[in-house]
Design a protein around this nucleic acid. Structure first.
Lengths: 248, 248
DNA sequence: CGGGGGTTTGAGTCCGTTCAAAATACGTGG
DNA sequence: CCACGTATTTTGAACGGACTCAAACCCCCG
């Protein structure tokens, strides 16, 4: 059933450069020395991907790993009935596909650009060679997968216990870290990289519910929404949404 | 808020033995040679844990990893409001706590015996020493965490898309693998290691809902429940529950 | 026999869904 | 730059699955 239509992105360009990549120090590649970097950079291809474009599909063979140079990528998982969720977001500087690189023969989910992005692809053999040369790299991946698992368990807990409004507040708070800007008065402006239906897919609900929930937050002045721009004037109001749980 | 009451299990006994452990070949320790096994066995303690007894709590420092010699252990995660879910089950032959061993300083969830069990504990330093001696061990852990992450994502997908009845059917199917017995007529009998409230905690719902859902399956003859014994006479009936989705 | 935790059942409510339609945003070509 | 077609978002009304609260039941154990 997977890999039903369309084609995955072809990585042919070579305009990026690992040596000058601003994200390298914060990525798992930070452990690589100059020689290693030469290997990495030599086996790297990149591509410019447009919103909606697919990097790879669930079920595709795992040919290597992907690095996000800029933009935002959605990782989706679907079942045999066509149900799907947006499992996680990957941002500039993050790597994609390493779980399946170690875990299984094929991709267990698909990757799609949400906004115009630039992505690098590193061939399977190159990754294997680097792991051989530099054992610390494996530990880096290990720690990242461990973190991903923590996040996934956090998501499980939240989706089964918290109402959608609270989960949306959580999402806004995490998006704030990466896409938010604070002005002198303390007002926060977030440029969402997500369409409404993608917000729905992250929270595991329907677009209609998201529209209503957003309207609710907007009406009550917790956050002002217009298109993909969110303005939060009073951060405490938003924090209250996740504190109180609106249970007790 | 975590680690609120009671005390974790003390591991003092030394009645188990890694060399004769029947699960070793199927575990990540299968890569260890005789010398390595000596290290492992020398730094191992074990304990007999009763139903409801706690191995460790969320927030505890991560002092090492745990091996289930027999029985079933529940891994639970809770948030600051007291909400909790049963994130996964660990059975005889499986290891516990390796995610936090690599990922973070402290335990991100707690472990509790569901039935009378025997569990080994391996000291943090011993695990580190073994990883040093045998790099393949790290890869083994890597693959297991990757698998755990796959399972977690599968759970996320199911909890957000499937109704509880279908999820219960899924759960029964997986429990069948480990706790099921098939007689000559093809009838399957499953001895659940779980109380009703734990089934609820796995599916992310309330005990009342589980009681009603079980009653539904029972009434319709999909599976007969009495206490912790489940009898499935026609496996196809159960499989239909997850096939059709009862959507289209 | 009398707790006491776990399970079941019942009735009412609510949150989120479904289906359908209107409104808005977006991209493309004239 | 505007007009048009398409996709996304919003709104409405009705429905339904799971939750809440509460009581009864059960079973195991002392």
């Amino acid at each position: 059933m997977p890999n039903s239509s369309g084609q995955s992105t072809k990585f042919v360009s070579n305009s990026a450069n690992c040596f000058t990549c601003q994200w390298r120090e914060r990525s798992q590649w930070s452990t690589l020395n100059q020689d290693d970097l030469n290997v990495l950079n030599g086996h790297r291809k990149d591509a410019d991907v447009k919103p909606g474009q697919i990097l790879f599909r669930q079920g595709d063979p795992c040919d290597g790993v992907y690095c996000v140079a800029s933009g935002t990528i959605a990782i989706r998982k679907m079942d045999e009935h066509g149900n799907s969720v947006l499992v996680r977001l990957r941002h500039a500087g993050q790597t994609i596909g390493y779980r399946d690189f170690f875990g299984g023969p094929s991709m267990t989910n698909s990757a799609e650009a949400l906004v115009e992005s630039r992505v690098c692809f590193v061939d399977r053999k190159a990754v294997a060679a680097l792991l051989e040369r530099n054992p610390a790299l494996g530990l880096q991946f290990l720690q990242r997968i461990a973190k991903d698992l923590q996040d996934a368990e956090e998501t499980i807990l939240q989706t089964t216990t918290l109402p959608i409004r609270t989960r949306l507040a959580h999402l806004l708070l995490t998006l704030k870290e990466r896409y938010g800007r604070v002005d002198e008065t303390g007002t926060i402006t977030i440029q969402l990289p997500l369409a409404r239906q993608d917000i729905a897919a992250i929270l595991g609900t329907r677009p209609e519910t998201i529209a209503r929930t957003i309207r609710g937050l907007d009406n009550e002045g917790v956050a002002r929404f217009s298109g993909r721009t969110v303005v939060v004037e009073n951060l405490d109001r938003l924090l209250d949404e996740i504190e109180t749980d609106h249970m007790a």
